[in-house]
C-alpha cells in the first residue's frame, strides 16, 4: 500500500522529469530549426508517441511544436533582415521554409508586415538598436484539457 504523501511526491517527481524531457525536445527543435520538423523522430527520442508529445508540448509551452519552430524561424529571419538585405526566397530557405509563399505568409502574420517592409523599417531604425523584440504573441492560454493543437502544418 502506497502512502498518499509518498505517492504525491512520486507524481511531482515524474512531472518534473516529463518537463525536462520536453525541454530537451524543445532545445533540439531550437537547435535544428532550419531542418524540416520531424515530430516522429522527436517523439521516438523522447520515448513517447507523436500525438502525446505534441499534446504535452502544447500543454507545457502554450504552443505546438510546429508553432514553436515557426516562431523560431521567423525570429531568425527577422534577425537576418535587421542586419542585411535578403530576398524572401533566400530568407525562407535560410531558416528552413522551402515554400516562399508560406514563409512570407507566416512572416507577415508574425511581424505584422511582409519581409521587405520589415527590412525597410529596420534599416531606417538601425541607428543603435541591437535587436527588435517580437510583437506580443496572439495566442490563448495553454490548454489544460489536452485538446488538439491548432493546425500550423505547411511550414515543417
Amino acid at each position: 500500500m502506497c502512502h498518499p504523501a509518498w505517492r504525491q511526491a512520486l507524481i511531482a517527481e515524474q512531472r518534473l522529469l516529463d518537463f525536462a524531457r520536453l525541454r530537451r525536445v524543445r532545445d533540439r527543435i531550437d537547435r535544428e530549426y532550419a531542418r524540416p520538423l520531424d515530430v516522429e523522430a522527436l517523439a521516438r527520442d523522447a520515448g513517447m508517441p507523436p500525438g502525446q508529445l505534441a499534446r504535452r508540448f502544447l500543454d507545457a509551452y502554450g504552443q505546438s511544436p510546429y508553432a514553436f519552430v515557426t516562431e523560431r524561424r521567423i525570429e531568425h529571419a527577422m534577425a537576418l533582415l535587421r542586419h542585411g538585405d535578403h530576398g524572401p526566397a533566400e530568407l525562407g530557405r535560410a531558416v528552413g521554409c522551402p515554400s516562399t509563399a508560406v514563409f512570407v505568409a507566416r512572416f507577415t502574420e508574425s511581424a505584422g508586415m511582409p519581409p521587405a517592409e520589415y527590412r525597410r523599417r529596420a534599416a531606417a531604425e538601425a541607428s543603435g538598436l541591437p535587436w527588435w523584440p517580437l510583437p506580443p504573441r496572439r495566442r490563448s492560454a495553454p490548454s489544460r484539457i489536452g485538446e488538439a493543437p491548432a493546425s500550423t502544418a505547411g511550414l515543417a
Binding site: 525541454r23 530537451r24 532545445d27 531550437d30 537547435r31 534577425a79 537576418l80 542586419h83
Partner: peptide
C-alpha cells in the same frame, strides 16, 4: 551538458553558443 546552440556567428556579429546547466 545539454547543448541548445552550437557556436555560431549571429547576424548582428556576435559569435555565441548556448547550453543548459544541470537545473535547466
Amino acid at each position: 551538458a545539454e547543448v541548445v546552440q552550437e557556436p555560431v556567428r549571429q547576424p548582428h556579429g556576435v559569435r555565441d553558443c548556448a547550453f543548459r546547466d544541470p537545473a535547466g
